[in-house]
């Protein structure tokens, strides 16, 4: 097994792991965004809240989420460690520098650190509270299956593990934690919306370099595909953060 350690502790090996975790996190962004888009529904959060329940209890999703958390930590740790080593590779800096590279590509460490801080804030607000808080609000939905009419009522004081979803006499009753309400309340605060929009701009810059850089590190550079990867990476790095940022802005104004 010696060679495995040698391989992944070499500079190229650490880069490979950074690229693999980074690209995996890109796929996570897509899944996370698709879920979040349900916040645009005007259904008082029925779709979003049942989705949140599914994502936190499904065994397959829970298994993948372990991979996700370790990828975030691994990507951050490797990135910071490489940034530190790279800094040490030039102990005396130049008096004058005229860069011929793109700004984002030179500042991946700073951008990544800002994203990490954002993730900490983001998770301690929604993820941690959803999982652990005792007084978390609940909502009861009654959906008339024939007419599609939905009536809701807020519930509180329920045990944090409660989830109800059944159909009786043509009425679907759902009682779920009201994460939708949490989002709504959070994004009524302007500074919070601004924090999210800025963080998504930071993410956009990080992705604009990171996406195509990941493929290069994997050795996937080819006359036929590299221009397509770069183009797709640019579109990806603009569209995904834009869609994420649109959610708090939409909630603030509605």
């Amino acid at each position: 097994m010696n060679w495995v350690i040698t391989t992944f502790s070499s500079s190229l090996g650490k880069k490979l792991l950074t690229a693999l975790t980074g690209l995996f996190l890109c796929t996570f962004l897509v899944v996370h965004l698709l879920g979040n888009l349900q916040l645009f529904y005007s259904d008082e959060g029925l779709a979003f809240n049942t989705y949140a329940r599914f994502m936190t209890t499904n065994p397959l999703i829970k298994t993948v989420s372990i991979l996700l958390y370790s990828s975030i930590l691994g990507h951050a740790f490797l990135g910071l460690y490489l940034a530190y080593k790279n800094k040490k590779a030039r102990p005396v800096s130049y008096a004058s520098v005229n860069n011929q590279s793109v700004w984002a590509s030179r500042n991946m460490g700073v951008l990544g650190t800002m994203i990490l801080l954002f993730i900490v804030v983001h998770m301690s607000d929604f993820w941690y509270e959803y999982h652990n808080e005792d007084g978390f609000p609940f909502k009861e939905y009654k959906v008339e299956l024939l007419t599609g009419k939905v009536s809701t009522s807020a519930k509180s004081g329920l045990d944090k593990g409660v989830y109800v979803d059944y159909v009786q006499d043509g009425v679907r009753t759902v009682i779920a934690k009201d994460l939708f309400l949490e989002c709504k309340e959070a994004f009524e605060q302007l500074w919070y919306v601004v924090l999210y929009v800025i963080s998504m701009a930071v993410l956009a810059f990080h992705l604009s370099h990171g996406f195509q850089s990941g493929f290069q590190t994997l050795g996937l550079n080819h006359k036929k595909y590299t221009s397509a990867i770069k183009w797709f990476g640019l579109v990806f790095s603009i569209l995904i953060p834009l869609a994420f940022a649109a959610i708090p802005v939409y909630m603030y104004f509605s």
Partner: peptide
């Protein structure tokens, strides 16, 4: 004690022989 590559492309832009970044991808492979 050389640093590691972050694919900024500054090397290739400044190389007097204009060596392409494709070679770095090939080295990785």
């Amino acid at each position: 004690g050389f640093g590691s590559c972050t694919n900024t492309g500054a090397c290739s832009a400044e190389c007097p022989k204009e060596i392409s970044l494709e070679h770095i991808a090939r080295m990785n492979r």
